[in-house]
C-alpha cells in the first residue's frame, strides 16, 4: 500500500506542476518584466507594474464593471433557477418533459446567437449598457443553473417539506423556510458557476457595449497588447489582480461548490 500512496503523491504533484506552471510564469512576469513595452526581464523583483495598474482610475472602473456584471448575473439568474428548479423537482405537470430543452439550449453555440442578439439589444434600448451584458450572461447560464438546482431540491427528502406544510406553512412558505436553506450549498454552487463564467467572459461585453467606460476586465487585459507593442508587466499584473476575486470566491465556498456539483449532476 505504501508504494501506491507514493505513486499517488507523485501523480498529484505532477498534475499540480502542469496546473501551476502557466500561472507561476504569469506572476513571475508581473514581478520582473519592465513596466512599458520592453521585453527583457530583469532578475530583480519589483512591484512597479502593480503600482502602475492600481494607480490607474480606469482599472477601478473596469473592476467595478466586472463586479457589477458578475453579481448582477447571479442576482438575476439565481431566483429564476430556484423557482424553475423547484418546479421541476417537486411537481408533475403536463409539458414537464419539455424541460429537457433546458439541458439542450445552453449547449448550442452562444457565439452563433450573438449577431441577432445585438439587433434585439438595440431595439430594446439595452445596447451599449452593462444590463445587456448581464442579460446575455443570464441567458447562457440560466438553463444549466436550473438543472443544477433541480438536482439539489430532488436530493432533499420530500418528507421534510411535507412536515412543514402540515405545521401550517404554505407551499411557497416551505420552499422559503425549509428547502432553500437546505439547498444552500447548491445555490452557492450555482452562484460560483455563474460568477466565474460571467467574470471571464469577453465576447458578450465585446458584442453589446461600445463605450470605453463600460469595458469589463477581459477586454481591458487585451488592451495591453497595443499599437505600441505589448506591456507584459502591466498585462500580467492586471491579470493577477483580476484573478483574485474569482479565486477568493471559489476558495471561500469551494466545499459547497463541490457538494453542489455532486448533487446537481448526480442524477
Amino acid at each position: 500500500m505504501r508504494g501506491r500512496d507514493v505513486l499517488a503523491w507523485v501523480g498529484l504533484v505532477l498534475i499540480a506542476v502542469v496546473v501551476f506552471f502557466p500561472i507561476a510564469w504569469g506572476i513571475k512576469t508581473s514581478l520582473t518584466a519592465p513596466l512599458g513595452t520592453g521585453r527583457l526581464s530583469t532578475p530583480l523583483l519589483h512591484l512597479e507594474s502593480y503600482r502602475y495598474i492600481l494607480s490607474q482610475p480606469l482599472f477601478v472602473v473596469y473592476l467595478k464593471n466586472s463586479l457589477f456584471v458578475s453579481l448582477g448575473a447571479i442576482a438575476t439568474a439565481l431566483p429564476m433557477a430556484v423557482m424553475g428548479g423547484y418546479a421541476l423537482a417537486r411537481f408533475d405537470f403536463p409539458g414537464k418533459r419539455l424541460s429537457v430543452l433546458l439541458l439542450v439550449l445552453p449547449l448550442l453555440p452562444a457565439i452563433a446567437v450573438l449577431v441577432p442578439l445585438i439587433v434585439y439589444m438595440q431595439r430594446l434600448g439595452l445596447y451599449n449598457t452593462l444590463y445587456a451584458v448581464i442579460l446575455a450572461n443570464v441567458v447562457f447560464n440560466t438553463p444549466f443553473a436550473v438543472w443544477m438546482v433541480r438536482g439539489f431540491f430532488a436530493s432533499i427528502p420530500y418528507e421534510i417539506e411535507e412536515a412543514a406544510t402540515m405545521d401550517g406553512c404554505s407551499r411557497l412558505g416551505s420552499l422559503w423556510r425549509i428547502s432553500i436553506p437546505l439547498a444552500a450549498p447548491g445555490l452557492i454552487a450555482v452562484s460560483i458557476f455563474v460568477f466565474i463564467n460571467a467574470w471571464n467572459n469577453y465576447l458578450y461585453a465585446f458584442a453589446f457595449t461600445t463605450s470605453p467606460d463600460l469595458a469589463v476586465l477581459p477586454q481591458a487585459l487585451l488592451r495591453f497588447l497595443g499599437a505600441w507593442g505589448t506591456n507584459y508587466g502591466g498585462l500580467t499584473a492586471a491579470a493577477t489582480l483580476a484573478l483574485l476575486p474569482p479565486a477568493l470566491f471559489f476558495l471561500l465556498f469551494q466545499k459547497w461548490f463541490v457538494m453542489g456539483m455532486v448533487a446537481g449532476t448526480g442524477k
Partner: peptide, 15 residues
C-alpha cells in the same frame, strides 16, 4: 455586491 452594483449602475446610465 448590491452596494457596488448600485454605484456602477449609476455610472453606466449616465453615458
Amino acid at each position: 455586491g448590491l452596494g457596488l452594483g448600485a454605484c456602477t449602475g449609476a455610472t453606466a446610465t449616465t453615458a
